[in-house]
Design a protein around this nucleic acid. Structure first.
Length: 287
DNA sequence: ATCCAGGTATGCA
DNA sequence: TGCATACCTGGA
């Protein structure tokens, strides 16, 4: 396959290799893999792209020639280059909170990708009690078995319409176990209510969260992940076991329940709590 | 080998 | 409302 030459992402994104790995392979997306030269290759919707750092630590990208037009127009949105990160980061309580202040330095340049809502929902429905590597394998298997070819061996994740045509046992061949029932149930609802997902974008945060939780297999944690990673709702503060550990350690919240921690997070970090969550999460995984 | 994982739904106090 | 327990199974 023919790839375009490398170009800089604009406006420029400056970060170190560890932070780039955290963005692409830290658990917000499951569709990026590192090649032997250290480049990253990833997919979202009908896009395929490569990403790497230049000598100065600035992110550059390339894509299959045939997709140049589409990827060029979508990649700025995907990497949220139109979002004013310095302004958002400045609204986090870094002046009074050394934990977040340190994390902002340690993971400078960390950001939330803006992923397609349907794909984000699918990936996180597969995520319960699974490690990142396993979630990636499930997504890859789903794409390989049931996804549409984009180019050559690259296949997109199956659409919800396609998923709705599959049997639970067909889904189980993708190594997802009991999660197949949830995907089947959700696919059924989305097929009967074609505007369900797009409608979520128009709802207030609490309403959107409730609408997601109404889907089988979606609880509070997955709903918050879908809102944060797939709907640009930066006030979402997903709390999983990692975040429970991080918040217990840094803020003395030993023994708190997940929804108590969610409440603490939004009260303490404010409208961009999800961004703070991402910084703390990176630190908890990597120390 | 065998154990457990980035949760959710369900049933029972 | 709150807390156990089952649910699948691949990969560490």
């Amino acid at each position: 396959m023919q790839w375009t030459s490398w170009c800089l992402l604009e406006p420029e994104l400056s970060l170190n290799a560890e932070t780039l790995a955290e963005i692409l392979n830290g658990g917000q997306t499951f569709r990026w893999n590192q090649t032997k030269d250290g480049d990253w290759v990833g997919q979202w919707s009908q896009c395929i792209a490569r990403v790497r750092l230049d000598r100065r630590g600035i992110v550059e990208w390339s894509c299959p020639r045939k997709l140049k037009k589409q990827v060029a127009s979508e990649i700025p949105h995907y990497f949220a280059l139109d979002i004013n990160y310095p302004a958002m980061i400045d609204q986090l309580p870094h002046r009074s909170d050394d934990v977040i202040a340190d994390a902002l330095v340690r993971w400078e340049g960390l950001r939330l990708l803006r992923q397609p809502l349907g794909e984000t929902l699918l990936a996180f429905l597969c995520s319960s009690t699974k490690r990142i590597t396993q979630i990636k394998i499930i997504c890859e298997t789903l794409a390989n078995k049931f996804g549409e070819v984009v180019i050559d061996q690259y296949r997109a994740l199956p659409t919800w319409a396609v998923l709705n045509e599959l049997s639970e046992s067909a889904l189980r061949t993708c190594k997802m176990g009991y999660r197949a029932r949830f995907i089947k149930g959700t696919a059924n609802i989305l097929a009967e209510q074609p505007n369900y997902l797009s409608g979520i974008e128009t709802l207030s945060f609490p309403e959107a969260r409730r609408a997601l939780i109404a889907l089988p297999g979606v609880g509070e944690k997955i709903a918050d992940c879908v809102l944060l990673f797939g709907a640009g709702r930066l006030e979402a503060f997903p709390v999983d076991v990692w975040m429970l550990r991080a918040m217990a350690r840094h803020y003395g919240l030993e023994g708190w329940k997940p929804n108590q921690v969610t409440h603490f997070g939004s009260a303490h970090f404010g409208p961009y709590a999800g961004l703070a969550q991402q910084y703390l999460f990176a630190g908890e995984r990597k120390g």
